[in-house]
Simulated scan of single mutants.
Amino acid sequence: EDHGDRVNAAHARHVEARRLLLLGRLDAAEEALGASGPAAALPPALQAVRGLAEAGIALRRLQAKAAREALAAAANAARRAGIPALIAEIGTAHLLLDAPAGRLITGGTARALSIEEVEALQATQALVVDACRHLVRGGERSISLATRPVLFALARALGEAWPEDVPRGALIARAFGSRLTDESHRARLRVEIGRLRAELQPVARVNATREGFLLVPRPAREVLVLARPEEEGHAAVLALLADGEPWSSSALALALGTSQRGVQRALEALAAAGKIQAYGQGRARRWTTPPMPGLATGLLLTGPWATG
Rank of each mutant, 00 (worst) to 15 (best):
E160T: 00
A161N: 06
W162C: 05
P163W: 02
E164L: 15
V166I: 09
P167F: 06
G169C: 00
L171E: 02
L171Y: 06
L171F: 02
A173H: 10
R174E: 15
R174G: 05
F176C: 09
R179Y: 06
R179S: 13
L180W: 10
L180Q: 11
L180C: 03
T181A: 08
T181P: 02
T181Y: 01
D182K: 01
E183Y: 01
S184G: 05
R186K: 11
A187H: 10
R188V: 00
R188W: 09
R188G: 07
R188N: 11
R190Q: 12
V191L: 15
L196N: 09
R197Q: 13
A198R: 15
A198K: 14
L200H: 05
Q201F: 09
Q201P: 01
Q201A: 15
P202T: 07
A204Y: 06
A204P: 05
V206E: 00
V206Q: 03
N207H: 13
A208N: 10
A208L: 12
R210C: 05
R210I: 01
E211A: 15
G212D: 07
G212I: 00
G212N: 04
L214E: 10
L214R: 14
L215F: 11
L215K: 08
V216Q: 15
V216F: 06
V216K: 12
P217L: 09
R218I: 14
R218Q: 14
A220M: 12
R221G: 10
R221E: 03
R221Q: 10
E222P: 02
E222I: 03
V223T: 07
V223A: 00
V223E: 06
L226K: 08
L226S: 02
L226R: 05
L226I: 04
A227I: 11
A227Y: 08
P229K: 06
E230S: 12
E231M: 11
E231C: 09
E232R: 13
G233V: 13
A236Q: 13
V237N: 06
V237T: 12
L238E: 02
L238S: 04
A239K: 00
A239L: 06
D243K: 02
G244N: 09
G244C: 06
G244W: 02
G244L: 00
E245C: 11
E245Y: 12
P246I: 04
P246C: 00
W247K: 03
S248Q: 13
S248I: 03
A253Y: 02
A253W: 00
A253D: 00
L254Y: 08
L254I: 12
L254G: 04
L254W: 09
L256G: 00
T258P: 04
T258H: 01
T258V: 15
S259N: 11
S259Y: 02
R261K: 12
R261L: 14
G262P: 04
G262M: 06
V263E: 10
V263G: 04
V263T: 08
R265G: 11
R265D: 10
R265V: 13
A266G: 02
A271V: 04
A271G: 06
A271N: 09
A272L: 11
A273V: 02
A273F: 01
G274C: 01
K275Y: 00
I276E: 07
I276R: 02
Q277S: 09
Q277V: 14
Y279W: 13
Y279H: 12
Q281V: 15
G282V: 14
R285I: 08
R285E: 07
R286L: 15
T288N: 07
T289Q: 13
P293M: 04
L295T: 04
L295H: 08
A296D: 15
T297R: 14
G298N: 03
